[in-house]
């Protein structure tokens, strides 16, 4: 198979960027999308040209490192997949592919397709945990949790923190990401003690980082590689109002 790639190249954070066009040919349909970029990079290195910089690590869809907007969609066209789980057989032979970084004010580009997502870490630092020290807590089975709540918590906890929700949203809103963590902990008795404090400080940090607000487009859910439901945003709003009312 062959493809034309239009790739965003930007040498550093404060330097201007531009699209650069590359042709790749003789690509096996069994090649993954990132392996196709590996092949291109190896060719560029062999020609003493600078390879395209992109984030990737586990290559099995769980670490959340990979982060490319392909033809206008975060992680491309696959349903419930990350960029690293795309295979070239799912693209059309001869197709032109436009590769961009996850764009958002809160995710500055560091180089080419790599962005700085440390804003997500700072949101978690603001309260995305249960404040227990390592030690000897009570027995794990001391506090039963209804299975339905445990399952809903797990649905939300699956978030891989990749930032696709932000890249997909016209407002660059991080509310699916924040909603997933708030939901995960609000649904469990272990998270109950800090329930109000958590949601208020995480939202405060989210706003300080420059993420936008949700206007119910649901693009985040559509492009989320873990298919996290927008109902978590609804729960985030409820938790926020509940906490505000109790303030």
């Amino acid at each position: 198979m062959k493809f034309t790639l239009k790739v965003w190249r930007q040498p550093a954070r404060d330097k201007p960027g531009r699209f650069e066009t590359h042709e790749v040919s003789d690509v096996s349909p069994d090649t993954s999308f990132l392996e196709m970029l590996d092949i291109l990079n190896n060719r560029l290195e062999g020609e003493s040209k600078s390879p395209i910089v992109f984030d990737s690590d586990c290559r099995e869809g769980i670490c959340g490192a990979c982060s490319i907007v392909i033809n206008g969609r975060a992680h491309g066209d696959g349903e419930g997949t990350t960029t690293c789980q795309l295979y070239m057989r799912n693209f059309k032979d001869g197709e032109t592919l436009v590769l961009e970084p996850f764009r958002a004010r809160a995710f500055p580009v560091l180089k080419d397709l790599v962005v700085d997502r440390s804003a997500f870490d700072r949101i978690i630092q603001a309260g995305g945990y249960v404040s227990v020290n390592t030690g000897a807590p009570q027995d794990a089975n001391a506090l039963p949790v209804p299975k339905v709540n445990a399952d809903l918590a797990m649905d939300a906890a699956q978030c891989i923190g990749c930032g696709a929700c932000v890249a997909a949203c016209k407002n660059a809103s991080a509310m699916l990401f924040v909603g997933a963590k708030v939901s995960h902990l609000a649904l469990l008795p272990q998270g109950a003690v800090e329930r109000e404090r958590r949601v208020l400080s995480m939202i405060e940090q989210m706003e300080a980082e420059g993420f936008g607000n949700c206007t119910n487009e649901y693009e985040c859910e559509a492009q989320c590689p873990k298919q996290i439901s927008v109902s978590n945003i609804a729960r985030l709003n409820r938790e926020f109002y509940r906490a505000k009312a109790r303030e």
Binding site: V132, A136, A140
Partner: peptide, 14 residues
């Protein structure tokens, strides 16, 4: 296991 449950790790339940 006790520590992880206290942290809110959503282990599978019955």
């Amino acid at each position: 296991i006790d520590q992880c449950v206290a942290q809110g790790v959503p282990f599978a339940r019955e």
